[in-house]
């Protein structure tokens, strides 16, 4: 059960929009939206240091966040 961390949508663009239209916009959909009750024995990061740096013990709960515009 995998999901994407981000969704895209295509806003309406009016012929009279004064600012240059952004045709694709995104919003984050982090993993807690999909997990329900966390399943037991979920895989953990390999080292405590990795877990500490990620802010969570479980990769499945980690949500990468890039500065807007830095997305790859």
């Amino acid at each position: 059960m995998s999901h994407t961390n981000k969704k895209y949508w295509y806003p309406y663009v009016s012929p009279y929009d004064p600012c240059k239209p952004i045709t694709v916009k995104s919003y984050p959909t982090p993993p807690q939206l999909y997990m329900g009750f966390q399943p037991p024995n979920l895989a953990q990061f390999e080292t405590p240091k990795q877990a500490l740096f990620h802010g969570t013990l479980w990769p499945a709960l980690y949500s990468k966040y890039d500065k807007r515009g830095d997305e790859t």
Binding site: T4, K7, Y8, Y27, T29, L33
Partner: peptide
């Protein structure tokens, strides 16, 4: 919320 969570409309061109 379920609609916003759905995977459709994936961005195909980056």
């Amino acid at each position: 919320v379920e609609i916003l969570k759905e995977e459709r409309d994936k961005k195909t061109i980056f």
